[in-house]
Nucleic acid binder design. Structure first.
Lengths: 147, 147
DNA sequence: CGGTAAATCACCCGAAAGTATGAGTTGCAG
DNA sequence: CTGCAACTCATACTTTCGGGTGATTTACCG
């Protein structure tokens, strides 16, 4: 779980930097007007937004939004995936692909780069013996990998 | 959309209560020590946590609609097609598209040129309000146009 | 401690897909 | 006959996909 702590450090560091920025912000603007309430409100609002962002990122891997739902129709059990050598991540991409999302959109939803999505899709196409994403989706449905 | 506003009210109310708590917190403890930095830091930390919580809530709610229940049973009757303005020829192209064929393959199977297929697909995408063929196929299945 | 698989990202390049526009042909209803 | 909708095709252009290759970082297994 090294990566996890790395993330924590990263977020912590970012928050630290933001606190520094807040100090500057405070002395340059707020204290001059002696508006403590406004200042605190701004801080609260800002960090709520930051928190939402951080939260979405931290929970992104754990909640598996799409996976959880499609699961009801077709359980992505490891045995089924293993039959065709699909990794969990590749399966996630496959699901988003089946919903008609572009590579760019998939990258955004999974918080990875466009190139990473392309790599995943390449191996999906290879493993499902398909040449196009539409064909991969069709084959996956026939195989029972997708509802 | 009643539930949505109920959520907003709930979150808003909670935040309001927290702000009140902050006031008490401030006067009873922080300002006595004249520790503005600590106070702001506490606010930032607290609202980051709140943000994470709110973010997870919002995310949890958003993931639901993604559940696109695929409706099977799809008779390609003319009435159904007419609803979305699809012509018979466009429906043929849509079916082949759903099977994962490329534009070139579709052109070959329908004995028309590649450009004609592109034209048909363009209007299909337009009529189904999709931007990609995979999305068009997905929407068509949800609408019951495809099995 | 190595070896391995998974996941991530980058760069290049050609092919496929999609957009926009125009236009010719048919068949049919008014 | 005229207008319209469907079908066809083309040209030019932009964007997206997909293949190929290589690299790094983790996590896990023996």
């Amino acid at each position: 779980m090294k990566k996890y702590w790395l993330n924590v450090l990263w977020y912590g560091g970012s928050l630290g930097l933001l606190l520094v920025a807040l100090q500057v912000f405070k002395y340059k603007w707020v204290l001059l007007k002696n508006d403590l309430e406004g200042y605190v409100g701004a801080v609260a609002l800002m960090f709520t937004v930051i928190g939402i962002w951080v939260g979405s990122r931290l929970l992104a891997g754990k909640t598996q939004p799409v996976a959880a739902i499609v699961t009801r129709h077709s359980p992505p059990d490891k045995a089924l995936l293993a039959k065709h050598g699909l990794t969990p991540r590749e399966y996630e991409v496959l699901q988003l692909m089946a919903l008609g999302h572009s590579n760019q959109e998939i990258a955004g939803q999974l918080y990875v780069s466009l190139n990473t999505v392309k790599t995943h899709i390449s191996s999906i196409l290879s493993k499902l013996d398909a040449e196009r994403r539409t064909q991969a989706v069709q084959k996956a449905k026939v195989l029972g990998l997708l509802p």
